[in-house]
Amino acid sequence: MKKLLFTIIVGISLSLTSCGQVDPNNNIDEGKVEGNIYTSQEIGWTIEIPKGWTVIDKEKTKETNEKGLKAIEETIDGQVDYSGLKNLISFQKNQFNIFQSTSEPFELEYEGEWEENNAALKEIIYTTYLNQGIKTDSSATTVEKIDGLEFQTYSFRIYSPKGEVILKQIMFSRLINGFDFGVNINYNNDKDRDELLKVFRNSKFKK
C-alpha cells in the first residue's frame, strides 16, 4: 500500500520525539534544508519551516514506522512493501502537533489508478484505527488547490476511550512527477492547525 504510513503511526503511538540535531538535513531522505526553507527537487516543492518547530529525527521516525507497518499488515492480512517510501520534511512542536510529508514512486498502469489507490488507503487507515481499538471518524474527500495544483484531502478525528477528541488529522495527496506525494497534518488545537495549514498552503511548486 502506498504512502503516508505516518498517518497510522501517529494516531496509534503518539510518540514521535526529536533529538535536537543541529543539521536538519540528516533527518530527510530527499531534498535540502537551507535556513528555514526546505526544497524537494524530485517533487519541485518548497516550504517554509515555521519558527519554533523542530525537524523530526529520522531514526525515531523509522522506529515508529515499524509500528505503523505492523498495524497495516494486520488490517490487510498481508505484507507491505514500502522500500520506495521517502521521508521528506517533517517537523513538530510536540507529540501531538506535527507536519509530515512523504513521497513514493507511483507508475500509472491505467487511468484512475492513483485515485483508486488513494481511496483504498483512506479506508485502510480508518479500518486500522478501529482494529487497534481507536475510535475515529473521517470526512468526505474533497479537492483543494495549492499554488494552482489540485490536491485530494480528507481528515480524521481520533477519540479517547471516554469519547473526547484527542487528535485531528488532515491529509493532502497528489501525484507529482511520477511520485505519490502526501502531507499529513496532526494537531490538537486550532492555533497549531492554522499555522501548519498556512505554511503548506503557502508552498510553491514548479509548474
Rank of each mutant, 00 (worst) to 15 (best):
L5Y: 04
F6A: 13
I9K: 11
G11N: 06
I12V: 05
S13H: 03
S13F: 00
S15Q: 01
T17E: 06
C19T: 14
G20L: 15
V22T: 14
D23E: 03
D23N: 10
P24C: 02
N25Q: 13
I28G: 07
G31N: 05
V33Q: 15
E34S: 10
N36M: 05
I37G: 01
I37Q: 08
T39R: 06
S40V: 03
E48L: 08
W53I: 07
I56H: 08
D57Q: 01
D57R: 00
K62W: 08
G68Y: 02
G68Q: 10
G68E: 03
A71L: 05
D77I: 11
Q79I: 15
V80M: 04
V80I: 13
G84L: 06
K86I: 11
Q92I: 00
N94L: 01
Q100T: 06
S103D: 12
E104W: 08
E104Q: 11
F106I: 09
A120H: 08
T128C: 14
Q132T: 09
G133R: 04
I134R: 03
T136S: 13
K145A: 14
I146W: 04
I146A: 02
G148T: 06
E150G: 14
T153F: 13
S155F: 02
I158E: 01
P161N: 08
E164Y: 09
Q169W: 00
F172Q: 03
L175F: 09
G178Q: 10
D180T: 00
I185T: 03
D192L: 01
R193A: 12
E195S: 10
E195A: 08
L196N: 02
L197P: 01
R201G: 10
N202S: 15
S203P: 13
K204V: 07
K206C: 00
K206D: 01
